[in-house]
Amino acid sequence: MSLNLTDITLTYPDGDTRLTALDQVSLEVPQGSLTAVVGPSGSGKSSLLAVAATLITPDTGTVTIDGQRTTGLTRGELTELRRHKIGIVFQQPNLLPSLTAAEQLQVMAQLDGRKPGTARTRAMELLDAVGLADQAGRRPHQLSGGQRQRVNIARALMNDPTVLLVDEPTSALDHERGAAVLGLITRLTHQQATATVLVTHDRTHLTAVDQIAEVQDGRLRLPAMNR
């Protein structure tokens, strides 16, 4: 398994008590598969994603990324794990305003200490894969919302992650662009053989996912294979 969450419990302080965001959640996501995590707002979807991204340490339970347990890792080791093993597609594209589309990807390689020439080639391959090879020199303000989201996706794949975490990628897109983006994520999941978790409250485009897990009040309904 590329991503394995076991018995995850996460609570937040809420006045004098604690609010349970995730309650004994377990989830397995195989390599090359796409798991959609659905549920209403506030159900714990994003908390699940944050735990999987190693951005929050759960109260109990274990997170295993590509066979490596994250329990006990230092902050620096978790940062390194995110850099090498985890790709994150943010809800908002969160592109850096001073960088061109190609540079948004190259910065990932630069963080990883890779050579600029190799990074440029890989960036162009990925921009081509998301249909933006001709927009490589444009900055975020020169791209449309859909184009920015595609750069966001390509950036997440730049360091060849084993786990791809996608947070509400269609929330700011219309129906047609949303469908295109989800189709792209599905295709890239299979092409890049990532264990992809897609968090969404929108069930309209989920026909192509491999697994759907539903979160309700911090509890995960046992996932049933979609296909």
């Binding site: 390194e80 995110r82 850099r83 994150i88 943010f90 969160n94 963080l111």
Partner: peptide, 10 residues
């Protein structure tokens, strides 16, 4: 915050 989430060290 984005760069840190993507794996940039402090």
């Amino acid at each position: 915050a984005v760069l840190k989430a993507l794996g940039a060290s402090t």
